Simulated assay, not measured.
Amino acid sequence: MLAKIAFIGTGGTIASIGTDQFDLLDYNASQQRLDAAALIERIAIQGTIADISPVNFRQIDSTAITSGDWADLADLCCQLADDSSLCGIVIGHGTASLEETAWVLSLVLDLKIPVILTGSMRPLTGISTDAHANLAAAIRVAIAPTTGPGVFVVINDEIHDPKTVTKTHTLRLGAFQSPWAAPIGYVDGTEVRFRQVSKRRNETFARDLLREMPRVDISYSHVGADGCAIQSFVAASAKGIVSAGFGPGMATPAETAALHDAVNAGVIVVQSSRTGAGLVVDTAHHQSLGIIAGGDINPQKARILLSLCLAAGYSHGDIAEVFHSL
C-alpha cells in the first residue's frame, strides 16, 4: 500500500500555464493556473510514489499572499494533520515568497508529520520545466521515514531549512540556496538523504496571531540614505521596523538617528543585514540606542518574526531574547 499524503495547491509558477513551451518569462500574463487536482492529473503522478489527496486552496501569484492567507493555510495544515492515515503534507507554492511562507509555517505549526513546500522556476508548460521533478522530490521527502516532523523546503533535489533558505536568482533552476549553511539533505532518485537534522524552533507562536500581525516595515540601507523612509514608516503607525543594513548590520548615520527616534517613539527596531547571510553584530552602540540585533536571518524573515512577537505582546527584552536564541 502506498503512503498517503495531502497536496495543497496555492498557484504559483508550478501550476502556471504559458502560451507555449517557450514561454518561460511572461507566463503570468495568461493568468492560467491549475488547481491541485488538475496539477496532479497533468503531471500524472497519482499512485506512482504516493496516494495523493489533492486539496485546493487558492490559485494566486505568491506576491499577492497576505498574512490572512498564511493563517488560513496554517489552519488547513492542522485540519489535514488530524487524519491519522496521512504521512505528510506537500504545498505547491510560488517561488517569489516561498521562503517567507515556509518560515511562517515553521513558527506556527507543531505537527507530528512533515510539511514540505515546493515550487518551480519554470512554468508547468515550459520546455524542461522543473515542476514535475520538484513535486516528485517533495513527495518523496514527505513520505520518507527519515524526515520526521517539521517544515522543509524541497526544490532542485535539495532539502532546506526554512530559516536559512532564500531565493538567490530570478530565473535559474538552482535559485534556492542556504547561504553559508548549505542544504540539510538531498533527494537522489528514489533516495532521501539527510546530512543534518533541522532544528526545532525555540518559539512556536499561536496560529491565530497571524490574523493580528501589526505593521512592520523594512528599511533598506544604501549610500546616502537619509532616514526619510524610517520617518515615513513611523508616521504610518508601524509598530516595528527592520533595518536591512550594510555589512555586519549597520545603517547610515542619518538612518541610525532616525531609528533611535523611532525607538523613542515606542517602535521596536531590529537590525538585520542586506548581505543575506551572516550574524548581525550586537554592538554596544546599538544596545545603547535600544536597537535589537537580528541574528542571522534575512530582513524579510526578521520582519515576520518581529511581527509575530509584537502580536504576542512580547516586551522589548523578550523580543531581543527571541532573536538572540535563533
Rank of each mutant, 00 (worst) to 15 (best):
D226I: 07
V153S: 03
R172G: 05
T63C: 12
P149E: 13
A229E: 13
D318K: 07
R215S: 12
F205E: 01
F7W: 06
T164I: 09
G189N: 05
H316F: 04
Q271L: 08
H169L: 06
L308K: 04
F205R: 04
A133E: 03
M1H: 10
L135N: 02
L80C: 12
V90L: 01
G88N: 04
L306K: 02
I45C: 09
L173G: 02
P299C: 10
T256E: 13
A38R: 03
S272D: 03
V234G: 03
L34A: 02
P248D: 08
V216I: 07
R207M: 08
P214A: 07
A44D: 15
Y186W: 15
A182Y: 08
V281K: 09
S128C: 10
G276V: 05
K112E: 14
A74M: 08
V151Y: 13
A251E: 14
T63A: 10
A206M: 06
G240M: 02
C87I: 02
R122F: 03
D261F: 07
D188M: 10
T283D: 10
R42W: 11
D23E: 14
T10V: 12
G276H: 12
G249P: 07
L117E: 00
N156V: 02
A277G: 12
Y27H: 08
I241E: 04
A6W: 11
G119T: 01
I45F: 05
A37T: 04
E100I: 02
V165S: 08
H260F: 13
V242H: 02
G126T: 03
N28E: 15
V192I: 07
T190D: 15
W70D: 03
I49M: 01
S198G: 08
D226P: 11
E41F: 04
F246H: 10
G249R: 05
V187F: 01
A144V: 07
G240V: 00
I14S: 01
A206C: 13
S85G: 13
I304P: 10
L80T: 06
V263F: 02
P214Y: 04
G295C: 06
K163R: 10
G11L: 15
V197G: 09
I304L: 14
D296E: 12
W103R: 11
I49Y: 00
A37Q: 14
G317F: 05
P123Y: 01
A229W: 10
G47Q: 09
Q31C: 13
A302I: 04
L173D: 07
Y186P: 00
Q271W: 04
I65E: 08
I159R: 01
P248C: 13
F323G: 01
A71I: 03
L259A: 10
P149T: 12
E99S: 15
F194Q: 11
L310E: 00
A50H: 00
H132L: 14
I241Y: 01
P214L: 04
I297P: 04
L289Y: 08
G174M: 06
H160S: 12
A182F: 14
M1E: 07
V267K: 00
A131S: 11
G12N: 12
A137Y: 00
P114Y: 05
A254T: 08
P54Q: 14
G68L: 09
G295W: 14
L109I: 11
W70H: 13
A136P: 00
S30W: 05
S315T: 14
G88D: 05
G126M: 04
D35I: 05
V90K: 02
L289M: 15
A175L: 08
P248I: 12
G148C: 09
L124F: 02
